[in-house]
Simulated assay, not measured.
Amino acid sequence: MGSHAAHADPTSAIYGKTIVPYNASKAALNLYTQNLAHALKDEKFKVNSGCPGWVKTDMGGKDAFLEVEEGAETSVYLATLGADGPTGGFFSKQQPIPW
């Protein structure tokens, strides 16, 4: 919900989903991710945003597409990046998402 590109694409699953406070907070988090990654570019830290997808949790509800284990894949991937892994990106599973 924080991808500007997906919100602007009429073929995207989130096109027209105008949950303004939620979308704005996610977009702000993504910009903060880019800024923090730049500030720490000479350090050993990796700073990335992750989108787990629509997960069957108390927040996601029973109609969500993904089980909790599937939703965790993105967090596990980002938490276990090696020293040569990406920084300053937005990911779902192991794939970058357009800003």
Rank of each mutant, 00 (worst) to 15 (best):
D58I: 03
Y77K: 14
S12P: 06
N35C: 09
V20Q: 14
A8G: 04
L31S: 05
V47P: 01
K93F: 04
G89V: 09
E43T: 15
S3W: 13
N48I: 08
W99C: 08
G16H: 10
A72R: 12
D63F: 01
G2L: 05
G85E: 07
V20R: 11
A27W: 00
L36P: 00
K46F: 08
C51H: 15
G88M: 07
E70W: 04
L78M: 12
A64S: 11
K46E: 07
T18I: 07
G61N: 13
F91R: 06
Y77P: 14
K62A: 05
D58L: 04
S75W: 03
I19W: 02
A5E: 15
Q94E: 14
T11Y: 05
S92W: 13
A79R: 10
F45M: 14
M1S: 12
Q95T: 14
A8V: 08
N35H: 09
E67W: 09
A24R: 03
V47W: 01
S25M: 00
A6F: 06
V68D: 03
A24Q: 02
N35Q: 05
P21F: 02
K93P: 00
N23I: 03
S25L: 10
H4N: 02
T87E: 05
A37L: 01
C51P: 01
P10H: 00
K62L: 01
W99S: 01
E69D: 15
L36G: 00
D84T: 09
W99N: 03
A13W: 12
D9P: 11
G85V: 12
N23A: 15
D63I: 02
G85A: 05
F65P: 00
G60W: 03
Y77H: 15
L78D: 09
Q34N: 10
D42W: 02
I19Y: 08
H4K: 09
I14M: 07
D63Y: 06
M59V: 14
F65D: 11
V55G: 09
E73I: 10
K62M: 07
Q94C: 05
A27R: 02
P86S: 04
A13V: 13
G50R: 04
M59D: 11
M59L: 15
P86C: 03
Q95M: 14
D84N: 12
S12N: 07
G16V: 10
P86K: 05
T74P: 07
G60I: 05
A28I: 05
F45K: 13
S12L: 07
E70H: 00
Q94D: 11
V20I: 05
F90S: 04
T57G: 06
G71P: 11
I97K: 13
E67K: 10
S25C: 06
F65A: 10
H7I: 01
Q95G: 08
M1V: 08
V76W: 06
D58M: 04
L29G: 08
M1I: 04
G61L: 11
L81W: 09
G53L: 13
A79L: 15
A6E: 11
L66H: 04
F45G: 05
W54P: 00
C51F: 04
G71V: 11
A64D: 08
K62F: 00
